[in-house]
């Protein structure tokens, strides 16, 4: 027995999903908080984005974030593939929603939708901000930085882009409603005393985070912020 062995059993694989999932949930909180600065002011948002881009600690965490995302995606894909192979002959009649929730059974599908959205999303903001450049410069309190705010406004003028973002966030909400609770269950933390609390906090968290995210492209498209 070695460490590799422990993390490749059926429970070990799920622990990897749970740990990376909770890490990504923490990222979502930070991401949502900083992006919500668009509702405060152009300067506040640009300063927040600049902090994330220039702070060394944040750049190191960013590497961890990409590692976490890839681990979560690859491990999730491998689990879906393995689990799809355990049935053999399929049932002619299935229980459907009578014994479980559709979103709980669809984590692979929802994850794939989120992944497709992520490709577009990273290409929209992360790539020009970190790699290709080409963003307008702006100045906040005498410091020169990218005008990511203007980039957001520009991107969210296209209806289909807003629609894809809403679909991505919608998928994320359902993915989180199951994933939040499921991560705690996999870690064995859903004792009777905390179970209901974890369920409720998970659902509220998923809805609030995703509503805030959804509000961002919509506000910019509708011209509620400018």
């Amino acid at each position: 027995m070695n460490w590799k062995h422990y993390f490749t059993t059926s429970i070990g694989k799920k622990l990897v999903m749970g740990f990376t999932g909770l890490f990504l949930i923490v990222f979502l909180v930070v991401h949502c908080y900083l992006n919500s600065m668009i509702f405060v002011s152009r300067e506040a948002f640009n300063a927040a984005a600049d902090f994330m881009a220039t702070c060394v600690a944040m750049r190191i965490l960013e590497v961890g974030l990409f590692a976490g995302i890839f681990l979560h995606i690859i491990q999730g894909f491998m689990l879906v593939r393995k689990n799809a192979s355990t049935r053999g002959e399929r049932y002619a009649v299935s229980a459907g929603n009578k014994t479980s929730a559709w979103y709980s059974r669809s984590m692979g599908l929802l994850g794939t939708l989120i992944f497709l959205f992520l490709i577009l999303h990273i290409n929209h903001f992360w790539v020009p901000s970190r790699i290709t450049g080409g963003l307008n410069p702006t100045e906040v309190h005498g410091v020169e930085m990218h005008d990511l705010y203007q980039k957001m406004i520009d991107i969210f003028q296209t209806p289909w882009v807003v629609a894809v973002y809403l679909l991505g966030v919608f998928s994320l909400a359902w993915h989180l409603i199951h994933g939040f609770y499921s991560a705690f269950q996999t870690m064995g933390l859903t004792m009777p005393k905390y179970k209901a609390l974890i369920r409720i906090v998970g659902i509220i968290f998923s809805i609030v985070i995703c509503l805030l995210f959804a509000l961002m492209p919509v506000s910019m498209f509708m011209g509620w912020v400018s």
């Binding site: 059926s10 429970i11 689990l79 689990n83 355990t86 609770y181």
Partner: peptide, 12 residues
Amino acid sequence: FGSCTNIGACEA
């Protein structure tokens, strides 16, 4: 056997 995805059909 497969991995548990915590959907709860077993308990039901």
